[in-house]
Design a protein around this nucleic acid. Structure first.
Lengths: 225, 225
DNA sequence: GGGTGGCCGGGAGAATTTCCCGGGAGAAAT
DNA sequence: ATTTCTCCCGGGAAATTCTCCCGGCCACCC
């Protein structure tokens, strides 16, 4: 009987780790030797235990999964890295593999898929979650049609002045900058801002940015270069 | 009993068409209604017969499969196009899907794969031959396209606690929520936040969200519904 | 004329930010 | 063992900002 492949889980959600462990325990060819909740802890345990496969969440409290992957890849070339992610965005996938991952599975996948992926990755094969193909292809077909449907129930109730100020707010302008550029007092800007927030029922700068992004007032894709 | 899906084959090799026909005939859910050896003939028959699926070879005597795909896509939006190719080069794959293909299968694949692909494509799903994943991934890994490995200088200088708080901040959590969840005082959260802003040289909530989005800490695409 | 609504500002108190401070814990160096 | 360092945790006080309410001005419409 051959030795079981050793697996290290790095994910910040204990419940999720439990789920993974039970799934893996049903497969006789793998065993979970340890787990970690942060990138740093994960890297240390990986360095120490030298597992065959690392199951790595993409979002961790301290570092991104990509960073951890790069470090593991560098220090432990023989350890295979499989990324677990909630996202099926092509950008994440690309970066994951460029960071040294050998497999990429999204968390919504069925349990059997994880086992299948483990088999492939442990034997050195690349594995791309097949349910991702759809996303990847959709990205490839990427029609640059960006419908700026700037029509929302709440947004229409804003006056033109308020819409103008909201745009500047969403673009990150400070109250002082807006006041200067519009030649009005900071106080007025504050009042407009308060009116905008009330009409749109939003309560933080974060929500305002999100709202603006959803309406296409600002192009969040530019942030990702 | 439901009607069989109608399939048109466009390929310049008669023997290959025969092979495809026998494979499809073993599957009760599809039937080959006609076949063509050139792009022009294929497009004419497609326009006339309006098949559910067109099996399209990438290399044809008169036109490329991509050109035929674009024409079919344009005139028959409801007809699914599945590319058959000997090549698994990423460039072909990209171009195929950009030309309107819904599936991509390489000719070396097993017969069952074709049936599986037909099922997927006929029901509107994208299908990418899984034996291609390896090629695609290999391409991704040494893709010169991706630069800017901005896992970022500044972010690495944040302590794990600061990174943790930064993520919560970017996700829109208020100071009070963070303090409660982390069981620390609001004051401490404010201090961490100030440290983060200083280390990253950002000066507004907006910039913080942008920074987090660029690093992939948050998924701005979710905002767009 | 009177009413309405947008735009502009102010005032006062509440809330937040900013900057400075120091203690404690743990790790690493000496 | 001790020092040193960094990080996490908070407090205090001043500065800034937010929030809500106020009034004036102007344009437009019954």
């Amino acid at each position: 009987m051959k030795e079981k492949r050793q697996v290290l889980i790095i994910d910040d959600h204990p419940l999720f780790r439990e789920g993974i462990k039970t799934i893996i325990s049903r497969n006789g060819r793998f065993e979970v030797i340890d787990e970690a909740g942060t990138g740093r802890e994960g890297f240390e345990k990986a360095s120490q235990l030298k597992p065959d496969v690392v199951l790595l969440d993409i979002s961790l409290p301290d570092e991104t999964g990509m960073e951890v992957a790069r470090k593991i890849r560098h220090h432990l070339p023989h350890t295979r890295i499989m990324i677990l992610s909630m996202h099926s965005k092509i950008d994440y996938i690309v970066e994951a593999f460029q960071s040294g991952a050998t497999g990429y599975v999204i968390k919504e996948s069925a349990a059997e898929r994880l086992a299948q992926a483990l088999e492939a990755v442990a034997s050195g094969e690349y594995f791309l979650d097949s349910s991702i193909s759809h996303e990847v292809i959709a990205k490839l077909m990427n029609s640059p049609v960006k419908e700026a449907k700037v029509s929302d129930a709440g947004y229409g109730k804003l006056t033109s002045r308020e819409q103008e100020i909201m745009r500047m707010l969403a673009e990150g302008a400070s109250k002082g900058q807006i006041a200067e550029q519009l030649c009005i007092s900071v106080k007025t800007v504050e009042n407009h801002r308060a009116n905008i927030m009330r009409k749109l029922d939003i309560h933080s700068a974060m929500e305002l940015v999100r709202y603006a992004a959803r309406l296409g007032l600002i192009d969040v894709d530019l942030w990702k270069e």
